[in-house]
Design a protein around this nucleic acid. Structure first.
Length: 257
DNA sequence: ATGTCGGAATTATTCCGA
């Protein structure tokens, strides 16, 4: 079983690229973020052609999440309770024995911006919702674009960026509180000391200058952790493919027994 | 050049968000 997460940065603009990736990696479950379209615009037929079903939680222009599966999945929740004003950023579905949630955590923009304290509140609401749901006792996945750099090793330049957005103690504390509801970072679990990134700014040749951040995670509950064989941040697909523009995020995938 | 993208609003150009 192969599971994956990917911020596609606009599904309509990325559709050919996404199909290329799906046909190359053949994941069984995928969480997408930043669809930037309404549910009515989701191209279910195009995914059906290559063997995927989708459940979606979109909105006009921004945000939006979806879960792709090989067979139809059952939606358990759309949206984070009490945080609806911050956009469509969470969806949970049951597929086979796995409870699969994907999230697009608010960016926050900068520590001075009004979105920053709202980002912290969103993370607190996520923690509360996860604690109440008791996912930790099931095979469960929580994945997505967290817009948080968990530790200095996950930043291209912690010395420069410490205290700035994605790199604050307040964000890291709240992310840890999410983990403490029963999750482990699958990549960091298998690769405790590897410096690898999942996002690079489009600007200034950041990708080629290795100026990235690791902000996209596959988290697993305890029983899922026992099944993890490998985790890969798919850098190849942060590069142009057949002249197609990539997302600014690389996909992350893991293979389970 | 804070250097690039995607999308929306409006009609090829400007803004907003990331």
């Amino acid at each position: 079983m192969r599971i994956a997460t990917w911020n596609v940065n606009g599904l309509r603009a990325r559709l050919d690229f996404v199909r290329l990736w799906l046909e190359s990696r053949r994941p069984d479950i995928v969480g997408f973020q930043e669809l930037k379209l309404e549910d009515e615009q989701f191209p279910h037929e195009l995914f059906a052609e290559i063997g995927y079903h989708a459940v979606t939680h979109g909105q006009k222009s921004w945000n939006g999440v979806a879960i792709l599966t090989r067979e139809p999945a059952e939606v358990l929740e759309r949206g984070l309770m009490g945080q609806e004003d911050f956009g469509s950023r969470l969806i949970t579905a049951q597929f086979e024995d796995i409870r699969f949630t994907t999230v697009y955590v608010p960016n926050g923009k900068s520590v001075e911006h009004e979105d920053y304290p709202k980002k912290l509140l969103w993370l607190e609401a996520l923690r509360d919702a996860l604690a109440a749901a008791g996912h930790a006792d099931h095979p469960a996945v929580l994945c997505g674009d967290f817009n948080i750099v968990p530790a200095p090793i996950d930043s291209w330049n912690e010395a420069l960026l410490a205290g700035h957005i994605f790199h604050t103690d307040a964000e890291r504390t709240r992310y840890q509180a999410v983990l403490d509801t029963g999750w482990s970072d699958l990549f960091r679990h298998l690769h405790p000391a590897e410096k690898q990134f999942s996002w690079w700014d489009y600007r200034g040749g950041a990708f080629h200058r290795r100026m990235g951040l690791r902000i996209d995670f596959l988290l697993g509950s305890r029983s899922l952790l026992e099944r993890v064989e490998s985790v890969q941040i798919d850098r190849e697909f942060r590069k142009k493919q057949d002249g197609l523009t990539p997302s600014d995020h690389a996909p992350v995938f893991a293979d389970l027994t």
